[in-house]
Nucleic acid binder design. Sequence first.
RNA 1: UGGGCCGUCGACAAGCGGUAAGUCACAUGGUUUUGGUCCAUGCAUUCAGGGGUUCGAAUCCUCUCGGCCCAACCA
Length: 564
Amino acid sequence: MENSEKSKSNFIRDIIDNDIMEGKNNGRVHTRFPPEPNGHLHIGHAKAILVNYKIAQDYHGKFNLRFDDTNPLKEDEEYVNAIIKDIKWLGCDWEDRLFFASDYFEQMYNYAVQLIKAGKAYVDSQTAEEIKQNRGTVTKPGINSPYRNRSVEENLDLFEKMKNGEYTDGEHVLRGKIDMASANMLMRDPLMYRIRHDHHHRTKGKWCIYPMYDWAHGLEDSLEGITHSLCSLEFQTHRPLYDWFLLELGIHKPQQIEFARLNLNYTVMSKRKLLRLIEENIVFGWDDPRLPTIAGLRRRGFTPESIHSFIDEVGVAKAHSIVDYARLEHSVREHLNKITQRRMVVIDPLKVVIENYPAEKNEVLDAVNNPEDETAGSRKVPFSRELYIEQSDFMEDPPNKYYRLTVGREVRLRYAYFIKCNKVIKDSDGNIVELRCTYDPASKGGKSPDGRKVKSTLHWVDAQKAISAEIRMYEHLFTAPDPESDEGSFTDNINPNSITVQKKCKLEPSLNKAKPGERYQFERKGYFFVDDDSAENNLIFNRTVTLRDNWKRILKQNKRHKNI
RNA sequence: UGGGCCGUCGACAAGCGGUAAGUCACAUGGUUUUGGUCCAUGCAUUCAGGGGUUCGAAUCCUCUCGGCCCAACCA
């Protein structure tokens, strides 16, 4: 992937510019992406990853990948591997700095002991319910725990026994001793450790006490020498606590900076809802091309480059926002337009017989591979008496401004000839099943022989030489722009047309060897990606995105005018 | 209504006291063998609202309104 110019400026980069000017951290910049391995990554995570990664890159700093695996109940190695795969695909390189919070457990334990010795932490033996009750509310101060004034010796002894597994889950916790009356709920003696006799995906059964996020996260950042710890907005109230632990310990304190998460309309981003879509079989899995997961986008045919440019365009700020899905589509189209070879594919075939074309004749015509890229060259496409065109490219009774084929009208078959439709053949139900046309031999190559104009150019496929394939076309998963808004019933807004499968597509034969992972533009139809399940005799394409469609817009306008 | 944060075009988002960038969307023209691409043009007399400071305010002060986050032994 080419490393394009520096990303747009934003408030975080302003802070960093300033830090560098002041010589903070000796001008060093070090960021990280700290996922919890308890789910799959989505486009929202891609923002977090890329914001961190690009800052490191642009400031000649470093970027770490660190799994924040402090809760054995939820985490699994399966997710670790999936996350690594996704970040690699995005093109972000952590070099040799792949870390796990669980690797720091010993160190964290020692820091906790240090805090206990300083009288800044204590073992609380209240029940979870008591702790909750005594925490107070946002308008009412909390009450000190009866165990708050245990001696350092007793705390040390208890904490060690906690570590040694002498207590059951929930019997004790370690808490920071801060201020139960703080207006900031998080400062009301935050929990640092809880007892959990559980199997951890890496440390196995070694530990039975596990650090809580607020205690662990700053330590992880500090230990790795992170300079700027970027996170999402909801951690703003955690910042004083992040700072408190590191200040009390007297160790390196990175600067936590919060920015808004990415939200996209017509989709959902929360782990819970994504999981529900999968569990209720509304989609096929984490890599369903309709999902905003990295795996889904990859399978849909998005390129890493297009995700980079999307994230960069959308920017970084502190205001909550919902970005138009159209911007993501714009980013892929922009990239795919440049890199993709064109092919002719008929998705909904309609047979065309060219009556004045000899039955036994075959021709091979030249077709340009990519008008945006001369070096892409050209290919050959076969032509003969019987062809397929798109059903939607013929109308018996066309509306205003319909430029395509109709009886008595002449159009161009791309790279081939001008044809004129003479007759429509229907089945007993009145469905159009075949068109009878004539061609102008002088228009070979699609060039107008005498300067006469045709209003449109159609794509087509030779009926004899065509190959078949399955094409899967996707639309928004939801019909409502903000399916997250009404909690609980978000599945009411599922788009029944989110996937359309067409199995009888006719493709030009050059697509015969299309391999999984390849991308093409099917002329006039969109950009398509060869699905992972595709094979030489069972071709499957996913539509990444349609082309911009001016005709659709005209139709919409017509409809609007009729309604008025 | 305890604390923290946010409010600039339909959607994002620059702007940091000198008179509202850019992108997407939308609209209109042009080019075109993809109704694609490309090109051109239009699209906030106004920055949630009021008051104040100033020669000058989206930017500073102040009040009001609206939205989000915090009371998991989750991250």
